[in-house]
Design a protein around this nucleic acid. Sequence first.
DNA 1: AAAACCACTTGACACCATGTCTAGTTGACA
DNA 2: TGTCAACTAGACATGGTGTCAAGTGGTTTT
Lengths: 203, 203
Amino acid sequence: MLDTMSRENPNTELNTKEKILNATWELLASNQGNGVRMSDIAKQVGISRQALYLHFPTRTELLVATTRYMGDELNVDKRLAPSRAATDGLDRLEKYIVFWGEYVPEIYGVAKALMVMGATDEDAATAWNDRMVAMREGCKAAVDAMKRDGYLSESLKLKEATDILWTLLSVRNWEHFVLDCGWSKKHYISLVTTMAKQVLTNK
Amino acid sequence: MLDTMSRENPNTELNTKEKILNATWELLASNQGNGVRMSDIAKQVGISRQALYLHFPTRTELLVATTRYMGDELNVDKRLAPSRAATDGLDRLEKYIVFWGEYVPEIYGVAKALMVMGATDEDAATAWNDRMVAMREGCKAAVDAMKRDGYLSESLKLKEATDILWTLLSVRNWEHFVLDCGWSKKHYISLVTTMAKQVLTNK
DNA sequence: AAAACCACTTGACACCATGTCTAGTTGACA
DNA sequence: TGTCAACTAGACATGGTGTCAAGTGGTTTT
């Protein structure tokens, strides 16, 4: 559909690059980010392993590109609009958590692969870090809005409050609640919202 | 000193096995669990890499053995005694969090290595899981005590409350607060205690 | 004193995934 | 026809784990 990036070879019915990104996404999603090798992706696309390296020089760069691709495809900005448009601080928080609860399951496989990669690969760690810093901005914006509207607990500094929300919403926590504890998406959103309010607001 | 396990060769001034466990612990602690290879450990002990495999058949088993060893050396049971002895539910919770806040920094390197290993190695994942299930017991005990004494929020089921405390105290969260957010040990204990109380109790 | 045993060494090697290199094929376009 | 881009095929390097075979040196057993 819309094609913001990489229009280097418009003739092939669907860009090989996009085929690769889709295959990577699908495989990582269905395997929860574990045990997907370059050769698996190549097989899925129907090209040779070497052709992969023609498009993406390293596994890390492929994962990073897939992350960006997901961001475009999933219309993150559009989905963040309700939270951003909220006039009330508490409303903004709630809508941000709803967004996040809907979003994480869709990106989890790729995110997980990038996290795992980050344990050994410096570039992957940096890329993952960037995403987390970006997501922290959303937390900070919600916290700022709450402060502005007088919701924020007086015993919390802005940084502390942001740290707390950022951690509460971390992908690791999502993993823990949803995968380890077996919470449903609904349950996750509902309980995390409650917790965030309890921890960040007065009484 | 006290030698509960493995008295197979009491003649050598200090058991090679123990030397290995100590070296593993030290190296992982000083590297935060990253980039420590079998050959690094062998070098640290002053034996050949192969000799390591004479004592521990796989890296995973070495990590698991080191985890057990730390448990013995750090006197976990003794350190848990205050929490277990607490007669009041809220007191029990607080003391458990203090224990945890003191304990995690000491085991973090090895724990992290086991977590990372768990991403690719099934046995490591299982071993790590076992530890986390054990630690969940502590959370459950605190939650039960709170329920008994009427502290627990009525809107939370026992499982939910345990899930929440378990997640709040996860090593990943400790990592996030202390390493990523830069909280001190004191700060961690204090804020996590506050959060736990806010989330688990009525009002 | 010889034999057996033990903890260890040395060095070679298999495995597996990533990433590199070279040479060749195929189809489109000029 | 020639060139270029996208791709294939297969060999190879690297790095870390784990295996295997043949020792060595010191202690214990007989």
